[in-house]
Design a protein around this nucleic acid. Structure first.
Lengths: 226, 226
DNA sequence: AGTAGTATCTGACGCCATGTCAGTAAGCAA
DNA sequence: TTGCTTACTGACATGGCGTCAGATACTACT
């Protein structure tokens, strides 16, 4: 194992050294990508720090130099994917174009983010009840969606497009719906059918907000295409 | 401690005995009620077998005589409350009376069950990802709701009352919605406002299924009251 | 009453994952 | 080369879990 017999390659000197040394950023990245790789294949409950670090060039204790525990690692992963998801969900949130079509676009973006990073969200959601700090982070994450969605709802209520009800509660419920369905469908392999899921979610949102089948709604100011 | 000095009371002989003895059923009940008591006050993550058994007259190892582990205990609690919830949800599921009113009644029953036993459901939902067996039980529990609801949806689609869409997917999504919202609102103290939650859920179900505000729908065969 | 038999119960053990720490080794600067 | 900083690791202590052999309560039979 600890061989150092002549390497024919011209690789950097004696690579089989007992110790590797990393830059802090490099090490962090190596650890997080080991985690992500693992979570695509196994549920969070099977992730131990030993397992995790076995997927890196570092030893187990090195983990604690970069993260306080597994939950903090998940928190950091969540921050990364939240960024992405918020961008893809922009159209309806920003109030661009015809509402029902824009809503579909936004939901499609959220669905796609889950197709790409579902296991991360799933791990966070599953681990959140186990750790007060991560639980707070997850609540805050969902809360920001509630903020964005309820603001949009309130605006469209003011415009008379959306029925009257408690906008905040409705936003909270619809977001919880999305989270539950998306985690179930895309949180682990094999993933579900994105189109079918999108259809279902869209139908519910439209029914709840606009009170009609998912076709089209007349906006006071907007001019729809087709 | 192991005194046997004369007791002045006429209580059953030498009650300070080191050991108590129970009937299997009595012991099980003592354990489960200790668990329920605990879960009303603390999250599942803080429940250890030591803590649990400290709330009984038994010692820690005795736990294993009645349950394989905490997850199996939760599974047994789930079975008990499922019974109750199914009964209270009967009206709409059974297709009695005017659909939208019946739906509200059923949802109200489900809400009430969560008001009464929320922490149990919450604990099960939180613990399910940690144990394959409990996860199966939880999925099966939700699956039975999906069965019942999608059957009802399909029946009303056939009657032309409900729009056309994938009934199974819709049932699954709506049930997931209920679970997420109800666990968040009633899974821990302080609990939320049952009426407000009911309004929100009802509005979403009605919007999704009947495509209208939560008032009333005309049934081909039914004669509504009032 | 005494005694054998059975079922319940518990102290004490081994196991495993976590988190910590003192000590070691890699890279850098003078 | 020397010495310093920083990354890293082997080894340890802790705590919950699950098990088991032995101890104890209760029952039934003589």
């Amino acid at each position: 194992m600890s061989v150092s017999n002549e390497e024919s390659v011209e690789a950097p000197p004696a690579k089989t050294s007992t110790r590797a040394r990393h830059t802090p950023d490099g090490a962090r990245r190596e650890i997080t990508s080991s985690a992500v790789r693992f979570l695509w294949e196994h549920p969070f409950r099977d992730l131990t720090i030993s397992e995790l670090m076995a997927g890196t060039t570092l030893s187990r204790p090195a983990f604690y130099q970069y993260f306080h525990d597994l939950h903090e690692l998940l928190e950091s992963l969540l921050r990364e994917v939240e960024e992405i998801m918020h961008q893809t969900a922009n159209p309806w949130i920003a109030g661009e174009g015809e509402p029902i079509a824009a809503l579909r676009e936004s939901l499609a973006g959220v669905v796609q983010t889950c197709v790409d990073h579902g296991p991360i969200f799933r791990a966070v959601a599953e681990a959140a009840p186990l750790d007060a700090r991560l639980e707070t982070a997850w609540s805050a994450f969902m809360g920001r969606w509630d903020d964005a969605v309820s603001a949009r709802i309130a605006a469209q209520q003011a415009a008379g497009v959306v029925r009257a009800f408690d906008a905040r509660r409705m936003a909270n419920a619809l977001n919880a719906l999305d989270a539950a369905v998306l985690l179930a469908e895309f949180g682990a392999q094999p993933q579900g059918d994105p189109e079918a899921v999108l259809d279902t979610l869209h139908a519910i949102w439209v029914g709840a907000l606009y009170g009609c089948a998912p076709t089209r709604v007349e906006l006071p100011t907007a001019a729809g295409n087709s």
